[in-house]
Every structure is written in structure tokens, then in C-alpha cells.
């Protein structure tokens, strides 16, 4: 149908100007997105490195001045910060653990061609797309010691006392970690589901013919086939968890005491409560380097 258009200009020998335009075109089209991505990601990262070497404490030194390693020295002597780092690892590993623990059985159940499985594959995404502010307040409602449905359940089970688990240091960290994993799990489910659907049925049929039971089929076919997906998606979800802020801030503000103060909370407090932006930048730089190393180590778990 395109060919029926009247031809106004047959492509003859292209002129040099036209050739130049053809060469510039791809760059011109990608440039606006690149400029914006650079402005939002690369420029701040570089500026952050510069900031981390400044002496800038709004109460004492209101304009930034070169401070050398001052922030890094302070950072390595900051006991509360290292407690937060340790807590962040517990939180991150806990979150990913809950995500995998929920996602594996759910994905196996959803990997069927029934109406129920198809409907559930869509609805399962609801917690994941519900904004943190809603999920956070919703769970505060559920865990409230006066009116909370989940609180009453925990109280009956003897897990919580008369006060909400959110007022108990260990209970609060466990609760927000679980909620974080619950909210992230649907992403792992859809990733696992895609991996499961790509396993050819013939593999299972052949194994069955060879006398392999359901457990042996799961162990020798399903697990190896989805392993890399679990590792890579687990890493992505782990990075997200490591830099969490919203859920914890909305639910506990990092408390009680410092019980749920993870790195994201430390960075936010360093800027907005302690008014030490340069120190916060130094924390971010150290965490980025640490996370990069950890990510490279996790990627070694992949099977080639």
C-alpha cells in the first residue's frame, strides 16, 4: 500500500549533505535521552564524589570548603553508621530471602494453563504496583495495637505482646523486612514464571520416561533452568532493598531507637536532620563501592 503513493522524489545519488545528515541522525535521535540520563545519573554521581571531599556542615561550615578525607575519617569512626551497615545487610538478605520463599511456590502454582492461574498471575502484581506510601500506612493499620487485624493474630500466637511489634526493636526490624519482601515478591514471581514457561515439556517427559519422580524432576530440571534467573533478579531486588528508604521511613522513621535505621535512613538523616550533606555524600560513595564489589561477587553464582 505504501508503494501506491505518488513518487515525488526518486532516491538517486545522495548528495554529500544528505549523507552527513544520515550519519548525524542516529546521534541526534538518541542525544536528548542521553543528555537527560546523564543529567540525572552521571552528573550527580560525579558531583557526589566532589562533595564527599568537602568540609560542609551547615551548623559550623555553611559553605563547602575542601576538607580532604575529613568525611571518610569521620565515617570510619562512626559506630552508629556501621551498625546501620550491618543492619542493612540483614535487611537486604532478609528481604531477598522472603521474596524467593514467597515467589518459588507461587510461581510453580501459577505455571499452569488454568483460568485461575491466569487471573492470579495478574492480581499477584497488586502489592508490587501499590505505592509505598499506601502499603506503609496500610501495614501500620494492620499492625496497630488497638485496631490491627495482623496485630491481633500475632498477639494470639504469642509473637507480639499487647504493644505493636513495631514498638519492639527486633520485632520492628523483622516486620519491616518481611513487608519489604512481601512487596517485592511479585517481581520475582513474574521473572520465575517467564523462566519456567521457557522450559520445554519434552525435558520433563524424557525424565519421566527414565523413571524420575516429581522431586527428581524438580531438582534436576526445574532448579538448574531457573537458577540464573533467581540469581540475577535476586541481585536486582537486593540492590533495590539495599537502598530502600520509603517503606522504613513511612512505617518506623528508623526507630524504635535505631532498630530499623538502614543506610538509606542514615543518608537521609545526615542531610536533613544533622545538616551534613558532604558527610552524607561520603556515605553514599562508600556504599556504592561496597555494593559494586558485592554485586560482582553475587554474579559469580551464575552458572555458565
Amino acid at each position: 500500500m505504501v508503494r501506491t503513493l505518488t513518487l515525488t522524489e526518486r532516491a538517486g545519488n545522495p548528495s554529500p549533505a544528505r549523507l552527513l545528515a544520515e550519519r548525524i541522525l542516529p546521534y541526534g535521535m538518541v542525544a536528548p535521552a542521553v543528555v537527560v540520563a546523564a543529567a540525572i545519573a552521571v552528573v550527580p554521581l560525579l558531583y557526589q564524589i566532589w562533595l564527599s571531599f568537602q568540609d560542609w556542615y551547615l551548623l559550623r561550615q555553611p559553605t563547602p570548603a575542601f576538607g580532604g578525607l575529613i568525611n571518610f575519617v569521620a565515617l570510619f569512626n562512626d559506630g552508629a553508621l556501621w551498625s546501620a551497615v550491618l543492619r542493612t545487610w540483614i535487611w537486604t538478605i532478609g528481604t531477598v530471602f522472603v521474596e524467593i520463599a514467597i515467589a518459588v511456590p507461587v510461581a510453580l502454582l501459577l505455571n499452569r494453563e488454568t483460568a485461575m492461574a491466569r487471573t492470579a498471575s495478574a492480581l499477584i502484581l497488586v502489592p508490587w504496583v501499590t505505592p509505598f506510601i499506601v502499603v506503609g500506612f496500610g501495614w501500620r493499620f494492620l499492625l496497630d495495637s488497638d485496631v490491627g487485624a495482623v496485630h491481633f493474630l500475632l498477639e494470639t500466637l504469642g509473637i507480639a505482646g499487647t504493644n505493636s511489634v513495631l514498638t519492639d526493636p527486633a520485632g520492628a526490624l523483622a516486620a519491616v523486612t518481611f513487608i519489604s519482601g512481601w512487596k517485592g515478591a511479585p517481581f520475582m514471581v513474574i521473572a520465575l514464571l517467564a523462566a519456567l514457561k521457557s522450559i520445554p515439556d519434552e525435558l520433563y517427559e524424557a525424565a519421566e520416561a527414565d523413571g524420575a519422580g516429581p522431586f527428581a524432576r524438580f531438582r534436576h530440571i526445574t532448579v538448574p533452568s531457573v537458577w540464573n534467573t533467581v540469581v540475577v533478579v535476586g541481585l536486582v531486588l537486593g540492590i533495590l532493598a539495599f537502598y530502600s528508604f520509603d517503606l522504613v521511613w513511612i512505617m518506623t522513621k528508623g526507630g524504635p531507637q535505631d532498630a530499623t535505621t538502614i543506610i538509606g535512613i542514615s543518608i537521609y538523616k545526615a542531610v536533613f536532620l544533622d545538616l551534613r550533606p558532604a558527610y552524607a555524600a561520603a556515605i553514599s560513595v562508600v556504599m556504592l563501592v561496597g555494593l559494586l564489589v558485592a554485586s560482582l561477587l553475587v554474579l559469580q553464582l551464575r552458572r555458565v
Binding site: I40, Q48, L51, I239, F245, I263, G264, V271, A281, S284
Partner: peptide, 12 residues
């Protein structure tokens, strides 16, 4: 993640 570049973005 947003947290990782929050400080420079706020300052900029």
C-alpha cells in the same frame, strides 16, 4: 537507586 544520588540531586 534514588537514595544513591539523593544528596547531590538535593544540592543541585
Amino acid at each position: 537507586p534514588v537514595v544513591a544520588v539523593l544528596v547531590p540531586i538535593v544540592v543541585i
